[in-house]
Write a protein that binds this DNA or RNA. Structure first.
Ligand SMILES: [Mn+2]
Ligand SMILES: [Mn+2]
Ligand SMILES: [Zn+2]
Ligand SMILES: [Zn+2]
Lengths: 137, 137
DNA sequence: TCTATCTTTAGACTTAGTCTAAGTAAATGC
DNA sequence: GCATTTACTTAGACTAAGTCTAAAGATAGA
């Protein structure tokens, strides 16, 4: 069972229509960094009459209200991320999949010290190969 | 005057057609991180009959041969970068402009130490406001 | 209920990018 | 030098991602 999405939307100043709740139920609980069309196709499985425009509008509204973030990391693709806390990203070069890397896993030094730039935010973008998960015995 | 682009292309195993030289003359000497269509429109100023497909093909060929890099940093836009050395990027949130940040300006610690990921490359992506250049007296 | 506002919808439109089929140009063979 | 093959370029068709529009549907208030 899902937590009450409608209440969460209202808390962020969003009227919880059926379509918006359906989008929220998917996009707020994924760790897959989906594109807008991926969200659309997943939401349509349970809500077949939802329109493409509504999904795009809803995702943009969620970004505006701070429920999710929009990322552009690779291949000119825009994806959405329900993790709005500071964190880094790792891109698997073979699969294209994007993984979260905890903020504390890395430290970047001298960020405030860059001549001529006032830094408001930053993240490290890493690329490589994900090691196959070692199964525990 | 420009250095001899044709020779440079040949050194990278690229036959230097007039169109490719025209693309090289612009894209290898910019620090603006242009999109493919921006390159096309700049190249057409001096070479009005060049086609869109040729510019796209040429840029992709240059990437494949290691003359330039393709970046996806913001707004779902793909841009090209003639600086193929390791460096970081700063994005001005007001103008959208992308600036190079020297590799030595920052240090990222513990990169090799991330559980489950084999890191082949990384960069720091910073966002903020560029300070207006202090004019010298 | 009547009305105003908000939301959703289908489809048109736009932009970025790839693909195709035909035409040019350059290289190779004789 | 001429014929043939190969490489390159071209215009335009096509696709994918995204926005916009105009009409319809839902919600909430008077
Ligand atoms: Mn595309
Ligand atoms: Mn777009
Ligand atoms: Zn993330
Ligand atoms: Zn750069």
């Amino acid at each position: 069972m899902r937590p009450d999405e409608a209440a969460l939307l209202e808390k962020h100043g969003i009227k919880p229509s059926a379509q918006r709740v359906a989008v929220a139920e998917f996009v707020l609980h994924t760790d897959a960094h989906p594109s807008a069309d991926e969200v659309w196709s997943r939401v349509r499985e349970r809500f077949p009459m939802v329109s493409r425009a509504t999904v795009y509008n809803t995702l943009n509204l969620f970004v505006e209200k701070g429920l999710i973030r929009q990322l552009t990391l690779t291949g000119g693709r825009v994806v959405f991320d329900p993790n709005v806390e500071k964190h880094h990203h790792f891109i698997d070069e073979e699969t294209g999949r994007i993984y979260d890397v905890p903020w504390e896993a890395l430290r970047v030094s001298r960020v405030d010290d860059i001549d001529g730039f006032e830094v408001h935010a930053y993240q490290v973008v890493l690329r490589g190969k994900k090691r196959s998960r070692r199964r525990r015995t």
